[in-house]
Every structure is written in C-alpha cells, then in structure tokens.
Design a binder for these strands. Sequence first.
DNA 1: GTTGATATTGAACGACTGTTCAATATATAT
DNA 2: ATATATATTGAACAGTCGTTCAATATCAAC
Lengths: 198, 198
Amino acid sequence: MVNCLKFDREQVVANATTLFWARGFKGCSMRDVQQVVNLRPGSLYASFGNKENLYREALLHYAAAGLASLRALEQQLDCPLAVLRQFMCQALANSLTGQPDKVCMLVKTVTELGAEQHPLASLARELLQQMAAQFTRLLAQAKQAGLMAADTDAAALASFYQMQLIGLKSVARLQPDPAMLDLLLQQALAILPAEKVH
Amino acid sequence: MVNCLKFDREQVVANATTLFWARGFKGCSMRDVQQVVNLRPGSLYASFGNKENLYREALLHYAAAGLASLRALEQQLDCPLAVLRQFMCQALANSLTGQPDKVCMLVKTVTELGAEQHPLASLARELLQQMAAQFTRLLAQAKQAGLMAADTDAAALASFYQMQLIGLKSVARLQPDPAMLDLLLQQALAILPAEKVH
DNA sequence: GTTGATATTGAACGACTGTTCAATATATAT
DNA sequence: ATATATATTGAACAGTCGTTCAATATCAAC
C-alpha cells in the first residue's frame, strides 16, 4: 500500500464548504475551488470524482458541523428548551458576524437547485429534516420533563421553530440592523414555551 | 417614426420573469430565455441591452405584481389586518399550487447574488423593503383604527410579519405537507393582533 | 539504488456562456 | 413604387465551464 497524499482531505472539504456556502453551486467554478484548496484539477478529480460529489461532501460536512454545535449546547445546558433558545441566538450571531452571506447552506442549496429537482437539493432537504428531527427530540424531552403542555405536537412545533430560524436568518441578511434583529429574535423566541424558573 | 416590433415587450418580460424566478440568474442562460420568449439574440439585446438589465426588469415586474395583489386585497377587505392575513394565506396557497419552486423571487435573488454584492441583489433588497413598508402602512392603519395597542411598533411588527412569510414559504418548499403547513400558517397568524369581531 | 505503484501536474478538450454584427426583412413616408 | 429608417436574423466571437489525460514527480519495498 502506498500513500502519496500531500493534502489534508478534511481541510480541503472544509475550505470548499466555505466557498460553496458563500457563492452557491453554480456561482462557484471548479477553478475557484482549485485555487482556494490549492490543488490542481487532477488531484481534485481523483479524490472527489466531480463537482457534484465535492459539493455533496461539503453539504455533509456543513450538516455535521450543525449537529455537532447542537450537541455541544446539549452538554452545556440542562434544559432542552434553553438549548433551542441558545441555538437560535447563536445562529443569529453568526449571521451578523459572518463576512459572507451566512444563510444556512442547506436552505441556500434547496433555493438554488430545488426547482430543477437536483439530487443535491434532495440531499439538502433530507439534512434539514434531520436537523428538524433533533429539534423534535429536544421538544419531546421538554414535554416529558413537564416544561410544556402534554398535548403539544413536538414535531409541529419543531417545524415552526425551524421556520422561525430560516425566517430570522433571511431577514438578517436583508437588513443587518442588530437592534431590530434582536427584537425579532425575542419575538420568535416568545413562541417557544418558556423555561420554568428555578 | 417607425415601429416594426413584432413582439409584446411586456409579455416577453412576463415570460422571462417566470423562467428567471424558477431557475435563478445563473441557472438560466440567455438561450433558455430566447427560447421561452421566442426571440433571437439580436432582438433581445436591442430591447434590453444585456442579461442583467433583463433580469432587472423581471424583478421590477415581479415586485409590481406583488404590490398589485396587495392593493387588490385592500380594495376587497375593510380591515387592514384581514388584508395582511389574506395576503399570507394567498402566498402559502401559491407556494402549494405553483409548479416551480415558488419562493419569493426577491428573496431568491438576494440568496443567490447577495454574497457577491451584486447590484441585482441590492435592487431585490430595496424591493423587499418597499413591500415591508406597505405592511408597516397597513399596521399603522390598524393601530389608528384601534385594532392594536397604541404602543405597538408598526415597523418592527411588519418586519416580523415579513419574516414569518419568508419562513413559511421556505418550509413549504421543504415539506409540502398541506396539513402541517396550514398548522404553521395558523401559528404564524396567531402572532398578528386579532381582528375585532363585528 | 532500483523497481513498481500511486499522486500530482498543467495543458488541452469540447461544450456552453453572454454578446456582437453584417446581412436580411419589414414597415412607414413620399 | 421607391427610399429610408428601423427590426430581425442566425452565424460567429472570445471567454469560461467541467473534465480528462499523458507526462512527471513522489512514495514505500526490496
């Protein structure tokens, strides 16, 4: 067995993700990618096959990072509702600080490629549902802990939460006025059942 | 003065709008446009200059249609809050029936071209703010009519309303389950101050 | 050091992009 | 009918796209 790889595959995917995230699938040429990952076409194609596969890996990388940051919050915070609240705050903060256009990459992919029923859009949709499933799980936990009414539909509330998140990030890109956005965040959070005082 | 135009300029813009809306700026070649409007490149370029200008006209056409449908609702309904509510219902209904990917074209444009600070993205942002201004106006009317608390911030509520609209349409594209979407719509509408019984 | 397998290179391919323009057709004015 | 101004046509341009591949460099094994 021989291994002559000079580059860190994961780092390449990470860099490609940043670029694809900012500029989209069609807005980003393979030459752009080659430059940002400092690789010649042959190496890139030997490792990833083609542009679509590379973007697929970028999507998976992005989604994994999202799940990881949610898990991190779960380990820091006891209350599942606090986890959701903090996740939303974090998302907005990233939208504000991030230099590029920091809408969720999954949403952006569905927006760009959904109409032509591109396989990458299907994948992005699946990953978004995966995220929503995590929200559902947290809300079910909250229900079991008596933090929410027993007849609450956890899945429906999770979808609603995701809708708030998507809407908030979109508006954040339209008018990056921190004061206004904070107000919107508060209004959105007000929908979630409040945490019990302790 | 001589006029040899064989085509209806407005109809051309309308058809181009549909195509651009579905497939985006980069996802749509001028040859695609030429085919759908049944015009050869020379005519198209003589009338519109270039792709960017044509897309610009499409954006304006789209935004004008949105404002027109809002005005239509205003003439049908007395209560300004009912207008907003109906507008949202209508938006969701269009998302469900529309064959292509019926996210708001303005949002889609900002999503696609916002990161590279493209002039078309700036225009789309302006048009979205124009729409938000209409919402603000309606909410201010509602306030004056005593339908809402006097200390309500109409502009902030309008932004929040727009956020709900964007989120709802995005989720509608992710999981086109009418029952779930109707539930989300109801939750979103619950945020708006209720109309007085009459 | 030589060998054999694998990785990297960069020029090149054909297809497609937005756009142009000389040739042609059309409509009005006289 | 002729002349003139304007509109339409479609072939063609230069640039970019995703992708390939023979030539070259690099590695581990003996």
